Simulated assay, not measured.
Amino acid sequence: MTSMKFSKLCMAGVSVLALGGCAGGFDLGAASDVFRRDPIAVPSIDRQTPDARGVITYETYQVVVARAGDTITTLANRVGISPESLARHNGLPLTYAPNTGEVLALPVNVGGAVAAGPSGWSEDIAVSAIENAGGSSGSVGSPTDPIRHRVESGDTAYSIARQYNVSVTALASWNGLGPDLAVRPGQQLIIPVPDTSIAATPPATPPAATPPATTAVAPPQPPASTTTTATATPPAATTPPPAASTARFAQPVDGTVARGYSASNEGINYSARAGAEVRAAAAGTIALISNSTGGLGTIVLVRHDDNFITVYARVADVKVSQGQSVSAGQVIAVVAPADNPTLHFEVRRGNTAVDPAPFMR
């Protein structure tokens, strides 16, 4: 397996002092101001479909995927092992009720064919694509043998996703994480595998590079001036809120948008002064407060109606506690000190990040 330590990032014209030193672990988030961008998550393939027992067999290990209503006992019985060994191997009590789709590591081989990977996947191309996209602190797994990560105290889904340069949405989908994206010490997570067919594709030409002359020679339009404007400037490619949802969120901090939602930034980054109040975008319950090691600092998650979650990252002086109910506009933290202070804000429906813009009021 090709190793990717990316030592060249320590010599890419950036001083050791500016990066805080790469020898102790390169913090992509802390260096984002130096590189003028956040880490880019490389697209991932879909996780393989489990067999009839719910088992996925990789080259060096196996996992079992929980179904609705499963318990440790039903999972163990289905694959022919003792419930005690399954629980112990995953650091769980026998009474644990897994999420639907949650992945548990198997302590012994229970038989089965090794999962096939997509045709055309190339580790060399995937490594090159990840290097060009900003790097990763680990190796690149293959579809038939993905990397496993054992969760340590202080890890979050966000810090793990950034450590391996994958989308937190893909990490949650591959492992069946709950809506609050909670992970537990000792848990074994499968790291999503890069999608070579997408990762190796050169980036599209930015809109600014499109020759403006195209608009000038467009055929005459009807007299209404708004028609011409609409032709010259296409509307933003955002997805409107689902008709069944009345969710609306207020801007969580007084500041300006420094970076909008995209495939590589699953939220909005607001430029704001350090110490600026961070407010709950809508009424809800504090689902998680955690410290990330992946560049997002302290993270607060608020759960709302309609299966929505809002995420507030790079905050400090948290003023709420997990499980507490908060009202819309209530101060939950402040923007953390930094050379260029920003609040990273996400809107998620379940585990899926959505563009916050259509939901803002």
Rank of each mutant, 00 (worst) to 15 (best):
T73F: 08
P194R: 01
S85N: 09
P222G: 13
A126F: 08
R314T: 14
T60L: 10
L92Y: 02
A52I: 02
G297S: 09
T285V: 15
T310E: 08
A243V: 14
L181T: 01
I286M: 02
R279D: 12
A316Q: 14
Q48C: 08
S119Q: 14
I147W: 00
T256G: 11
A224I: 09
S136V: 12
M1D: 14
R78F: 03
G295L: 02
D317V: 09
N99Q: 11
V14M: 10
G20V: 10
V127L: 09
M1N: 10
A263V: 07
T57I: 02
R248E: 10
A204G: 15
R361Q: 12
P223F: 07
P219M: 08
F6H: 13
I286H: 01
T342M: 12
A170G: 00
P39T: 03
A316S: 15
Q163T: 12
G329W: 07
V127C: 02
T227K: 13
R47F: 05
Q221P: 00
A113K: 11
A23F: 12
P143S: 11
T256F: 06
T95P: 00
A170Y: 00
V103R: 12
N340Q: 15
Y58I: 01
V278N: 04
V193Y: 05
A161N: 05
G69S: 10
I268V: 15
L92Q: 07
S167N: 08
G284M: 02
A218P: 01
F26A: 02
H344W: 05
D124K: 09
T238D: 12
A218I: 09
W121K: 00
T57S: 14
P98E: 08
T205C: 02
Q48A: 15
V65I: 14
A30I: 00
G54L: 03
A172E: 09
R88M: 09
I40S: 04
Q187K: 06
I299Y: 01
G25H: 05
P194E: 05
A30L: 08
P185G: 10
R248P: 03
E59I: 13
G294Q: 03
S44G: 07
N269A: 15
N265E: 06
G13M: 09
L86F: 13
N265Q: 12
K5L: 15
A172I: 06
T233Q: 11
V318S: 11
E59D: 09
I198K: 11
V140F: 01
A282F: 00
G178V: 00
D51W: 05
R349W: 12
A244E: 15
I81C: 01
L288S: 15
V315Y: 10
R47A: 14
A328L: 07
G294D: 01
F308R: 00
A12C: 08
G176K: 08
